[in-house]
């Protein structure tokens, strides 16, 4: 009989103790993960830049100039969702793990769920 795997979760504590704009970096086994609160949304990404392995989640969480159709136009957006690597400024959107470079390059993201007013980080099924 097949064993049903249930996703491993980490209980990060009460929602109201996780301030808007706060980030927490935690280690689970050999993996370091950053959890971010943006307004009422929570996002978690692996703390590892695919470029040269820097601790991505220690970089600024900001916005970026979104892709535009014509030169000379700037459209600031994704405010609060763009994680910029502290080493070489590579950018990733914490909602999707994707960059804005039209490539397949991405960082690993993890679901975050609120259960009974507590923040749970959902890890890969064991």
């Amino acid at each position: 009989m097949k064993r049903e795997d249930s996703p491993k979760t980490l209980d990060l504590g009460p929602v109201d103790e996780f301030a808007d704009g706060e980030r927490r970096i935690m280690r689970h086994g050999r993996v370091s993960i950053g959890v971010f609160r943006v307004g009422d949304d929570f996002h978690a990404v692996r703390n590892y830049c695919p470029h040269e392995g820097a601790e991505l989640c220690r970089g600024p969480l900001t916005g970026t100039n979104l892709p535009v159709a014509r030169s000379g136009h700037m459209e600031w957006g994704a405010e609060g969702y763009v994680l910029r690597c502290p080493w070489h400024a590579w950018e990733f959107d914490i909602r999707t793990g994707r960059s804005y470079t039209a490539t397949k390059m991405r960082i690993k993201t993890y679901p975050v769920e609120i259960r009974e007013q507590r923040v749970h980080l959902i890890l890969k099924a064991s």
């Binding site: 690597c85 590579w90 490539t103």
Partner: peptide
């Protein structure tokens, strides 16, 4: 390509590598 990944926000009209 490598530097574009870091600095593309300076020229967001360049939408690919």
């Amino acid at each position: 390509d490598k530097n574009y990944k870091a600095l593309r926000s300076e020229c967001p009209w360049v939408r690919e590598l």
